[in-house]
């Protein structure tokens, strides 16, 4: 005999099966954050491109990759990749844009430049080592361009500055070494160490404050992290200055682009390096050497006008930097 009430029977059977408890919140949020970070990087790249295209509208440049040069360490591992960018391609890309797009890019770039300039002014008023997050609400233009735009939070810090290597060494000496003097007559003249600000700012609070007060932007102090973004040192000689930029690479951060016209792989002792020259439209030709010191993750970039040093002098200075203890 069949059951007369299948509804009840089915309900009893389904209800009799206990359903386990589940908590997937952390997994879902982690997946979303991972995706957001990836998108944020893409957005940042796009902003970078827009700024560059904007510069082109104002008669400068946007570029596309041409060829890659790789530097390897003493173990044969790739430590740095540099992509050469082409000026011709910049111009071609720009010509392909419609007049409307050019206008839009120009206007958006103007907004971005204004925000960046304001950020610069705010940082000028800080003490060395202080950092701020600047919250910019979305502008009409940004929303028109992309309804899914996110407000721009500009996080900046004021660099620590030094007039002697001895002082600077106390701060960054555990990360890298440089000589106080090098080449024929180049002497340490000024140094800056820029540390990454912490990303622990309260965007929600800044957003609420901005909405409440209708301020153009909202500034929130943030602590500084202990991670060096980069350091820059000026060495002065009789003919002019040479500049050394130092950063510590991580695994995600070993590729970059250059607008240099000529790239050439050279050796600094047993260390691979890239020698490049770049001739700006209105200025002197600059040459530079970039390398990652063998056995370390320290990325050095030494540059000077060609009237200030010869290629041989630049290579000699690089050797001295590599030998500094």
């Amino acid at each position: 005999m069949m059951d007369k009430n299948p509804f009840k029977h089915m309900r009893d059977m389904l209800a009799a099966k206990p359903v386990p408890k589940v908590d997937v919140k952390h997994k879902v949020m982690a997946a979303i954050r991972a995706k957001e970070n990836k998108e944020e990087k893409v957005v940042k790249k796009k902003i970078g491109l827009l700024v560059t295209v904007g510069m082109l509208v104002g008669a400068s440049s946007v570029w596309a990759g041409m060829e890659m040069i790789q530097l390897k360490n003493e173990k044969g591992e790739v430590v740095l990749e540099l992509e050469q960018m082409s000026m011709q391609e910049q111009q071609q890309m720009m010509q392909q844009l419609s007049p409307d797009t050019k206008d839009q890019i120009k206007n958006e770039s103007a907004e971005i430049f204004k925000q960046l300039d304001t950020g610069e002014q705010i940082v000028n008023g800080l003490k060395p080592g202080e950092a701020v997050a600047i919250y910019w609400p979305l502008t009409k233009l940004q929303l028109e361009s992309n309804p899914n735009s996110k407000p721009f939070v500009d996080v900046r810090s004021k660099p620590f500055t030094y007039t002697t290597w001895k002082d600077m060494e106390q701060k960054v000496g555990h990360l890298f070494k440089v000589p106080a003097e090098m080449g024929t007559d180049f002497k340490f003249a000024a140094g800056e160490a820029i540390y990454l600000p912490s990303d622990k700012y309260d965007e929600r609070a800044m957003k609420e404050e901005q909405e409440r007060t209708k301020k153009e932007y909202v500034v929130q102090p943030v602590p500084l992290s202990d991670k060096l973004r980069n350091a820059e040192i000026e060495y002065k000689g009789q003919k002019g200055s040479a500049f050394l930029e130092v950063s510590i690479l991580d695994d995600k951060n070993k590729s970059g682009g250059t607008l240099a016209e000529n790239l050439e792989k050279v050796m600094i002792g047993d260390n691979e390096a890239v020698y490049s020259t770049f001739a700006p439209e209105n200025g002197e030709t600059v040459h530079s050497l970039q390398w990652v010191k063998n056995g370390t993750k320290v990325d050095y970039s030494l540059r000077a006008n060609m009237s200030v040093s010869t290629k041989e002098e630049l290579l000699k200075m690089a050797e001295q930097i590599n030998q500094a203890k």
């Binding site: 908590d23 997937v24 949020m29 979303i32 957001e36 996110k150 929600r204 957003k207």
Partner: peptide
Amino acid sequence: GSLEQYEIIIDHYQ
């Protein structure tokens, strides 16, 4: 843009 509010949604519907 308040991503953290989505945690409340997850708590409620998961």
